[in-house]
């Protein structure tokens, strides 16, 4: 039976997530550098590119705070801060091996509730600065939410259905033999898509797109910008990491201890997302909405039906 991690884990978790976010962003920077500037051609140059996120963070710390004319500062700031808060709180139910900071009986619902805060966060950050381009971009995320949220919830429910429990620890325990990804591949794929969408990253980065001068982040400078964009990487790490206990067997695996398997699998999922992102342009919801509702929703529904039938006959 899974149990809560010791108290010090509460302090370690945010730090560990931040380190994972920096490493992921560094890997992404190395790949982007190779595409834009040619291959690094040397460990030192690649290392310098990998350090880009750290340098960027320092640069933003040195910037003067900034606000726009007649801005809604309270709501804008709230939106900015909400992104990392939602990410870390959602991360509380992430099992590290077999122990999470907390493993409530409704852990899956807690995760869902926390990542749904991103809706509020991006919209508030877009509304706050009183700037047309960031306002447009904030609303882009709402449309995105309408498209990704249902397949996402069906994917979550399907995994919980396989374990007949909403406790994350039980979901992991149910995968001791066969990982859920084996008999729920559609739910896994839908989950990964929605993980990208809720982290508004990669092909789902339209709310922060270049065509709107940075979108919801267009007017953010200094620490605000760092918190918002850094929080986005945290959110990506947490949502990608949550696919491990849901579908990839959590800490289960031969030879290595549970925590090592969790780490390996999370790194693999993140690497996969960072690499696959390169193959796609940014998706606009105007086109994606129809595909999400008429393809992803029925597919995930059929997947849930299949799992329900299996559960009945088990």
């Amino acid at each position: 039976m899974p149990e809560n991690a010791p108290v010090w884990a509460i302090v370690v978790l945010p730090v560990a997530l931040a380190v994972a976010a920096v490493v992921t962003a560094g890997f992404d920077a190395v790949l982007s550098g190779a595409a834009g500037r040619g291959h690094a051609g040397g460990i030192r140059r690649a290392g310098r590119r990998a350090a880009t996120p750290v340098r960027e963070a320092l640069r933003l710390l040195v910037q003067q705070p900034r606000r726009t004319t007649a801005a809604d500062r309270l709501l804008g700031r709230l939106g900015v801060v909400l992104v990392p808060v939602a990410a870390v709180l959602a991360g509380a139910v992430l099992p590290w091996g077999f122990r999470a900071v907390s493993d409530p009986s409704v852990g899956v619902v807690w995760f869902n509730a926390m990542e749904a805060l991103a809706w509020a966060a991006v919209w508030l950050a877009g509304w706050g600065p009183n700037s047309a381009l960031s306002l447009i971009s904030g609303y882009r995320f709402l449309a995105q939410g309408l498209a990704y949220e249902l397949p996402h919830m069906f994917a979550l429910t399907t995994a919980a259905l396989g374990a007949e429990s909403l406790r994350v620890g039980d979901v992991v325990a149910a995968q001791e033999g066969v990982w859920f990804v084996v008999w729920m591949p559609v739910a896994f794929a839908a989950y990964l898509l929605s993980a990208l969408a809720m982290a508004f990253w990669g092909p789902f980065a339209h709310p922060l797109a270049r065509d709107a001068a940075g979108g919801a982040a267009a007017e953010l400078a200094g620490v605000d910008r760092l918190v918002f964009l850094g929080g986005r990487w945290l959110l990506l790490v947490v949502t990608a990491g949550f696919s491990v206990p849901l579908f990839l067997g959590g800490g289960h695996g031969p030879l290595l201890p549970g925590w090592a398997w969790t780490l390996l699998k999370t790194a693999a999922v993140l690497a996969l997302l960072v690499i696959l992102r390169r193959a796609l342009p940014v998706l606009r919801m105007e086109r994606y909405m129809e595909a999400a509702w008429m393809v992803l929703v029925p597919l995930t529904l059929l997947q849930a039906l299949f799992v329900a039938v299996v559960v009945l006959n088990r």
């Binding site: 003067q64 900034r66 726009t68 600065p129 700037s131 381009l133 267009a218 400078a221």
Partner: peptide, 8 residues
């Protein structure tokens, strides 16, 4: 804080 106009 710098007070600035919106950017478009």
């Amino acid at each position: 804080p710098l007070e600035a106009g919106p950017f478009a």
